[in-house]
């Protein structure tokens, strides 16, 4: 999956417009980065990438780029 496709998945998950996110976006600056979106990310990571995301791993995410890297 290309970086653009991965970003599109995240934008869709956050209910944002195309182009709203980049790898440099700091998660804590996003109003949408709340407890619910973290659960949505768990589902997305599991459905799309077959990965089980733990609470500790989520805490390590600083930027959107960190999530993209985790997607592999």
């Amino acid at each position: 999956m290309s970086e653009k496709e991965k970003l599109a998945l995240l934008e869709d998950m956050f209910e944002l417009e195309e182009g709203d996110l980049s790898a440099d976006t700091v998660l804590d600056d996003l109003e949408e980065w709340d407890s619910m979106s973290k659960l949505s990310l768990i589902v997305l990571m599991n459905d799309e990438f077959g990965k089980k995301l733990s609470g500790d791993e989520i805490k390590k995410f600083n930027t959107v780029g960190d999530i993209l890297a985790y997607m592999g």
Binding site: K38, L39, I42, V43, N46, K52, L53, S54, G55
Partner: peptide, 12 residues
């Protein structure tokens, strides 16, 4: 409650 752990359990 550890929300993330419970969530991971509940959906799996």
């Amino acid at each position: 409650m550890d929300g993330v752990e419970v969530f991971n359990f509940a959906i799996e």
